[in-house]
Nucleic acid binder design. Sequence first.
DNA 1: CAACCTGTTCGCCA
DNA 2: ATGGCGAACAGGTT
Length: 264
Amino acid sequence: MPELAEVEFFRRRWDAGLGEAVTAVQLHGAKRVFRGSDPRQIAKLLTGKRLVASRAIGKQMLFSFSGGAQVGIHLGMSGALRTEAAGFRAEKHDHLVLQQKKRALIFRDPRLFGRVRFHDGKGETPWLAGGPPEIHSAAFDQRFVAGFLERHRRAPIKAVLLSQKGFPGIGNWMADEILWRAHLAPKRLAGSLTRAEQAAFRRATRFVSAAAMRIIGVDYADPPATWLIHERWKRAGVCPKHGTRLKRETVGGRTTAWCARCQH
DNA sequence: CAACCTGTTCGCCA
DNA sequence: ATGGCGAACAGGTT
C-alpha cells in the first residue's frame, strides 16, 4: 500500500507511543528486512529509550529515540505499522515489535520488500543524506522539475515520475493520478513536454501529493469519487471525467492506466 | 492454477 | 560516466 500518503498514515500510528520508553524489543532476526544492519544491535540500543520524534522523507520513515538512536523504516510493497495492546505476541510477518508499558508498536511486512535500518545517532543518518527536495517544499520548484525531466528526457514520463530521486514518495497509483490530472500520456518522453505542460505537471504533482496527505495520510479516508484511483485497477475501469474506457499497459515497468481521450 | 501486485536494486547495454 | 530497461526479490490475493 505504501506511497507517501500511506507512509504518513502509518507513521502517525506509531506516534501513539511518543514520549514513552521501549521496555522490550522483539524481532525475528536474520530476516531480509534487516539487511544492512544488525537486528540485535537495534534491540540492544533501543531498550529503555523513549520514542521522541518521527518524520517521513519520501517513503522513508525515521523514528528518533532518546540518546540519539534512529530507526529508519521503509514499507516496501506490503509493509504496515500499527499498535496493539502491551504484551502483544509477534505473529509470522511481524518482524519488529517495540513493547511499551501501554502498547506495542509493530512493523509487519509479508512480502519482505520493506526494510528496517538503524543508526546510533552520531551525525546524519547516511541513507537520508543528500536526497531530492520534498514535493511539498519550496525547493521543489519549476527549475528543479524541468532539470530532472531534461536529465531523463529519453524515458517515458511515467517512469521518470516513479523515480524517487526526483519525486520522493510518488508510487504507481499517484503517478497515474498525476498524469491523468495533467493530461499527459504516460508514454510521452519526459523531454518532450512544453513549458506549459511542465508547469501543469508540477502543479498536478503537488496537488495530488497534498490532497492525498490530507485525505489518506490523516485517517486513510477515500479520495473524492472524481479521482482516477477508484477506476484504475478495475478490469473495465473508465475515465471519471467522461466514462471513456481506460487503457492499460506496462509503462516504466509498472501497470499503467490512462485515458486516451484526456491524456496526450 | 496462473497471473497479478501502491517498490527497490542489480546487472546489462547503449 | 550516465541513463534506460528488464529481471529478481517473496508471499498473498484474485
